[in-house]
Design a protein around this nucleic acid. Structure first.
Length: 591
DNA sequence: CGGACAAGCTGA
DNA sequence: CAGCTTGTCCGG
């Protein structure tokens, strides 16, 4: 039976982290290669799996079974290796990454590879094209470049610049954005596979492959350049464990393939700035791509008017399309008795309560509900110390004298033709255009107790900027308040506000780098959060590996900190996993 | 993961 | 001690 090869298979079963060897039946030989999706008999049942090595020498004394079935095409060999790396880097299992690297349906045959086009070009601003040429050119044959472009610049010419040099992988923050970009690339004459649908085309070979986060794992035949568009977008990080980040996968993948990686963003993260050389356009050009920012200094506003300052009121009454942003759901997040001024709190856990649409108090922490009665004086009248989106909608409606649509994460009002919207940041995702975006309580973003608060706040302004357009491109309407961001804050000198005001994102990076260095937060260090029922047992057996600091617990969560990922991830890989629920989040987002 | 098998608990 | 639950191990 020498014509029978032996292949190594990694079962697609979450709890199995081990490979098993199988014989390839002669008649299936041509269909089986590294990456192939197969079905195998394991312990008396059939499970799916992927071939991770071909032509292996099985351990002696084993009676090997043949593959039960070849399901179809899977990822190419370099992605199998990348999956092993990612499993180390984010303390996960290779199988979970291989799942992301495989089409969601069985692919039994590939289409014919698309031919390379003669030459494609799209019109772009000379400033942008020059910067793109410099950035892309600097990474021919490998390396990372970060390209900072103002928020309202079209990134299509940047991608076309890369596509002219060879096969290109393009990542966009959402499936919708990827699809939109993909269609435009096709219209520009470039053979483009749009993931996840066109996985077979990408596997066959296609000049450009475009997709969202998961496309970091898309097959690309002769990878020359990888683009990560809007690198600052948090959608690039997987929320479920393993919490991998598409930017970091893109960087590693490009390095292994000898390809260039270009991170494009109006507000690159510190991670991006640390990864490679920075390319920008001129100061004047960059500034012109940010909208006019009206900073409302809340320290000088009438407190009786609350969030609805005169500037907001006049924008509402100007007839312009106004989007108000307030990251607080519900009617109210903080209430006090109108009579005795006692704060309304949960009777069980003492956390502050909010009021639901029926008027009942609901605890945000434990979910306990009770009638809206003051525990101290029995009064039933309460004052809103902090209004939420639902309540604000009613107030705005009265002010604007038009109907106001509210949008929060769980409830989208759809892109109707209303003139005034209010919502959490979700409202910025649901709409495409506005004349004014008003951040009613921007301090809530600036002062959020998360280490990435400043970057996240700037990212919120980027989204708003795209709805209203840059100062050069803003709508030419004669309205007095068109194409503006209204930022209400008590911290007008904060670098995030100043960065948007001056169109200079570098200010945030500089301040942020100083802060993270002082506090030992990533990317100056590498961190992991450990939580779940088995966390304590894990930490106990984890001990104190050289170079790794164990912090906590707080709220049942421990933090591990090391000088770099090598130290952190090596220690995690060496640690024994106790039975039970354990969540290890490398590069935790919310700490 | 899920089956196999071994070691513990219960009940008449 | 059968009969059942709970735990640990292992798969080609």
């Amino acid at each position: 039976m020498n014509d029978c090869r032996t292949v190594r298979v990694l079962p697609d079963v979450p709890a199995i982290d081990k490979t098993f060897d199988y014989l390839v039946p002669g008649n299936l030989g041509g269909q089986v290669r590294v990456g192939s999706v197969v079905r195998v008999e394991l312990h008396g049942r059939r499970v799916g799996g992927r071939v991770v090595a071909d032509g292996v020498e099985p351990p002696p004394g084993l009676n090997l079974l043949p593959l039960a079935k070849v399901t179809g095409w899977g990822p190419p060999p370099e992605l199998i290796e990348l999956a092993s790396w990612a499993a180390w880097r984010w303390a996960g299992r290779p199988a979970s990454f291989l799942g992301t690297a495989t089409a969601d349906r069985a692919v039994t045959r590939l289409p014919t590879a698309a031919a390379r086009p003669p030459e494609a070009s799209v019109p772009g601003l000379p400033e942008v094209q020059a910067a793109a040429r410099d950035a892309v050119g600097s990474v021919t044959g490998g390396g990372v470049a970060t390209l900072r472009l103002p928020p309202t610049v079209d990134m299509l010419p940047v991608v076309v610049e890369g596509a002219a040099r060879g096969d290109t992988l393009v990542l966009a923050p959402s499936v919708v954005a990827a699809k939109h970009l993909g269609m435009r690339l096709r219209r520009a004459g470039l053979p483009t596979a749009i993931l996840p649908n066109d996985w077979p085309l990408a596997r066959a070979g296609c000049s450009v492959v475009v997709g969202a986060r998961a496309a970091a794992w898309a097959p690309v035949r002769d990878l020359s350049t990888v683009f990560v568009l809007d690198e600052h977008d948090e959608a690039y990080q997987e929320e479920r464990s393993p919490t991998w980040h598409a930017r970091d996968v893109a960087i590693e993948r490009a390095a292994r393939a000898g390809a260039g990686c270009v991170l494009v963003s109006p507000a690159p993260t510190l991670e991006a700035l640390g990864a490679g050389r920075l390319f920008t356009t001129s100061r004047g050009f960059e500034r012109s791509g940010w909208p006019v920012i009206d900073v409302v200094d809340m320290r000088h506003e009438d407190p009786a008017k609350g969030l609805l300052t005169d500037r907001v009121t006049s924008a509402l009454r100007s007839g312009a399309r106004v989007v108000c942003v307030l990251n607080r759901k519900g009617r109210s997040r903080l209430l006090a008795c109108a009579t005795c001024r006692e704060l309304a709190r949960c009777e069980r856990c003492e956390s502050s309560v909010t009021q639901d649409d029926a008027g009942l108090f609901v605890c945000m922490r434990c979910g306990q509900t009770r009638p809206a009665v003051c525990e101290k004086c029995g009064s039933t009248k309460f004052k809103n110390l902090r209004v939420g989106v639902s309540r604000l909608r009613e107030e705005l409606e009265a002010l604007a004298e038009t109907s106001v649509v509210d949008v929060t994460g769980e409830r989208s009002a759809g892109d109707g033709d209303a003139r005034v919207y209010v919502g959490t940041e979700a409202v910025l995702h649901h709409l495409r255009h506005a004349d004014v975006v008003a951040y009613l309580d921007f301090d809530q973003e600036l002062l959020a107790p998360r280490y990435r608060a400043a970057e996240q706040a700037l990212s919120l302004l980027v989204r708003g900027a795209r709805l209203v357009g840059g100062r050069e491109t803003s709508s030419s309407s004669a309205r007095s308040m068109g194409g503006r961001l209204l930022v209400q804050t008590r911290l007008p000198q904060h670098e995030v506000v100043q960065a948007a005001l001056l169109g200079d994102a570098a200010r945030v990076a500089a301040a942020e780098n100083e802060r993270r260095t002082a506090l030992g937060f990533p990317p100056v260090t590498a961190m992991a959060a450990v939580s779940g029922a088995a966390a304590e047992a894990f930490i106990d057996s984890f001990g104190a590996p050289l170079g790794v600091e164990v912090l906590g617990p707080s709220d049942g969560m421990w933090l591990l900190r090391a000088p770099d990922h090598r130290t952190l991830c090596d220690a995690l890989a060496a640690a024994a996993r106790p039975p039970g629920r354990l969540r290890v989040e490398v590069d935790p987002r919310r700490i």
